[in-house]
């Protein structure tokens, strides 16, 4: 159980730093090169950090997903990527397959009991 005041503060800080990037973008627009090195590094770190967060959500989940077996989460992930690829790289098709496989595996194993 997360303390509501702390959660509100976490979300508010997240919102502030998010808008901070947008406001900074307006301020520096026209003054920095969007194809430059700093922007390229920032994009790489943002991408890698998101990959790290996703992997942690799948391999070491918090909350309700932690009640599911690892093989079910990996299986659902593999199914999502496979269907995404087979359906002509359609993201929605892959997402639908991933959560459908997850629901079936959870129902079969009774993990959500």
């Amino acid at each position: 159980m997360i303390e509501p005041g702390y959660a509100l503060a976490a979300l508010a800080i997240g919102a502030l730093v998010t808008y901070g990037w947008r406001a900074l973008g307006v301020v520096v627009a026209g003054r920095i090169d969007p194809e430059g090195r700093v922007i390229a590094w920032v994009a790489c770190v943002a991408y890698a950090l998101l990959a790290a967060v996703i992997a942690r959500m799948i391999v070491l989940p918090l909350g309700v997903l932690a009640e599911t077996p690892l093989w079910a989460r990996l299986g659902a992930t593999a199914a999502g990527v496979a269907v995404w690829y087979l359906a002509g790289r359609r993201v929605l098709a892959g997402v639908a397959a991933g959560i459908a496989v997850m629901a079936v595996l959870v129902a079969l194993t009774g993990a959500a009991g």
Partner: peptide, 28 residues
Amino acid sequence: EMAAAGASLLLIGLAVGLTNARLLPLVV
């Protein structure tokens, strides 16, 4: 996720900031 893990507010701000840093090139 980080709030659920009980991370400090400083760390949450840093992680969200880095994750959303890709907004900067879009706006620029």
